[in-house]
Design a protein around this nucleic acid. Structure first.
Lengths: 186, 186
DNA sequence: CGCCGAGTTGAACTGAATCAAGAAACGTGG
DNA sequence: CCACGTTTCTTGATTCAGTTCAACTCGGCG
């Protein structure tokens, strides 16, 4: 069911491949404000959010910085930890009651070795994440606080209403006060 | 020769795979200040720089913004254009006499279908680029102009001396004047 | 030699951060 | 269902890093 959604969102995989993918998926439920991944752990899963909303964040100079939001049908990848198999400083927290499906590292690698479609699906996921990341980098170039917020509003209207201003501000690289003022002017 | 370097840098591919990779590589020489890719073209190659130095840049609000530098043994990927097959606004310019090897899109896809090692190599390339991009995003969070420059110095000492200040400034998200002052203080 | 682009330096300006105080919303227990 | 405390958000005043604009210096090259 979830495997089908995943497989079809990024590639057009066959029923056989969907079944194989389903066989390695691991479902996890997280309640509001619970951590899905703690600092120091190795992130062994590439997450697909089925329901709810999570954020990836870390502490820098004592501040809580949100790096990514993922809601229904979004991917959540802890690249450095998942790919290099090392302890993470980037945590994942559920901002709502959430259900995620994780693709564990090793099982995915073996599945990719034996199945071309899964291999292709993963490649397309990576490519999609990469392009998203480039877009995000770009938005920090020459855009004012207000422009960054308006872009976010347009690109992720669903998230804005569900997340505390504080997290959106750090995600958009501005102080909560600035975001509040930006909003007041719109 | 170049295929061997490439194959070994990102994966540990066999001689057979190296030969296959070599068979699709396209070599191109570009002289100083020449464009390797013009705006409006579709970027059909994932480039590997053999010798010299290139930058990727685009115009935004009339300014020339450098997005990426690639020198010897670095990759240069025009993600949006290469992956989505659409005309680019991101150009590539040689800052020195340069030799690049391009991996063309379609031939790579078919090679990946028939050869697992090449497939794996490309996957590792993508993963590597993705992690680099995340690091770069991070450095824009809570780092001052001076800190960004010092990080760049440490991470890419080879590039600093070979590139006009102007391009480094836009790459690091600051005005040339600011970079000049930052340098003066070190 | 004198031009030209690249880099430096100075002064004024500005967008956003910070600090501080108050208002609104939220939820928990009585 | 309300009262209270806590958290989240807003608003104002001040400060500061970095931009902008302008003038000047330097080094290379025709």
């Amino acid at each position: 069911m979830i495997a089908r959604k995943m497989g079809l969102k990024y590639a057009q995989v066959s029923n056989g491949a969907i079944d194989m993918l389903a066989s390695i998926l691991i479902c996890k439920e997280v309640s509001k404000n619970q951590l899905l991944l703690r600092g120091g752990e190795i992130c062994d899963r590439l997450y697909y959010v089925d329901a709810g909303l999570v954020r990836q964040f870390y502490y820098k100079q004592g501040r809580d910085i949100t790096e990514h939001f993922a809601c229904e049908d979004d991917l959540c990848l802890n690249a450095e930890s998942y790919l290099l198999r090392k302890p993470t400083t980037l945590m994942i927290e559920a901002l709502e009651p959430t259900v995620v499906y994780g693709i564990p590292y090793e099982p995915l690698r073996s599945l990719m070795d034996s199945n071309k479609e899964i291999n292709r699906m993963y490649r397309l996921m990576l490519e999609s994440i990469l392009m998203q990341t480039y877009l995000r980098l770009d938005s920090f170039r020459l855009e004012s606080a207000s422009e960054r917020y308006q872009r976010f509003l347009k690109e992720s209207p669903g998230i804005v209403r569900r997340v505390p201003l504080l997290h959106i501000a750090s995600y958009l690289l501005m102080s909560p006060e600035t975001l509040s003022r930006v909003r007041a002017k719109l």
